[in-house]
C-alpha cells in the first residue's frame, strides 16, 4: 500500500487539476464516502453537441480520493453523458494503478461514482460493485 503513494499521486493530491467551481453548470452531483468522510463534487459544462466542454471538481479527503478524482477529470473532456455513465472502474484503476486495499477502493472510486451520478442525474452505484 505504501507503494501506492507515488510522486504523481502526491502531485495530484497537492495540486489537483480542474479543481474549483464552474460559472455555468449543466450537470452536477456530490457525494461522500462515509468510511473516510471524503467528499467530492463534480460539475460539468456541455457543448452544443452534448459533450463535456469543461469539468471542475471540489472536495476534501484522503490522497487516494482526491488524486483519483483529479486524474479522472483530465480524461473526460469531449465525452457525452451517456459515455460517462458507462465508464468502468478501470477508468480510475488505469490512472492510479495497483496496490489499493479493498477497504480503500471506495476512496478511489468516489470521484467516478460522483461523475456518473452527474451524468445520469441520480446517485450512481459504487463502480466497484458493478
Amino acid at each position: 500500500m505504501d507503494d501506492f503513494y507515488r510522486d504523481y499521486i502526491l502531485d495530484h493530491y497537492r495540486n489537483p487539476r480542474n479543481f474549483g467551481k464552474l460559472d455555468r453548470v449543466d450537470a452536477s452531483a456530490e457525494d461522500l464516502n462515509p468510511l473516510c468522510g471524503d467528499q467530492i463534487r463534480m460539475e460539468l459544462k456541455l457543448n452544443n453537441r452534448g459533450q463535456v466542454e469543461d469539468v471542475k471538481f471540489s472536495g476534501k479527503g484522503c490522497a487516494i480520493s482526491q488524486a483519483s478524482a483529479s486524474m479522472l477529470t483530465e480524461s473526460i473532456k469531449g465525452k457525452s453523458l451517456s459515455e460517462i455513465a458507462k465508464l468502468p472502474k478501470e477508468a480510475v484503476l488505469e490512472n492510479v494503478g495497483i496496490g489499493i486495499s479493498p477497504t480503500r477502493m471506495k476512496c478511489a472510486m468516489l470521484g467516478l461514482k460522483v461523475l456518473k451520478s452527474a451524468a445520469i442525474g441520480e446517485l450512481a452505484a459504487w463502480p466497484d460493485e458493478n
Binding site: 468510511l35 486495499s101 480503500r104 476512496c107
Partner: peptide, 23 residues
C-alpha cells in the same frame, strides 16, 4: 501535516501497526 488520517493509517498498516482513522 497534510497527510489524511486514512493515508497515514494505510502506511502504518504496512508496518503492522493498527490505528483507527476517521471521525
Amino acid at each position: 501535516g497534510d497527510v489524511h488520517s486514512h493515508d497515514l493509517a494505510s502506511i502504518l498498516d504496512t508496518e503492522g501497526i493498527c490505528v483507527r482513522a476517521g471521525h
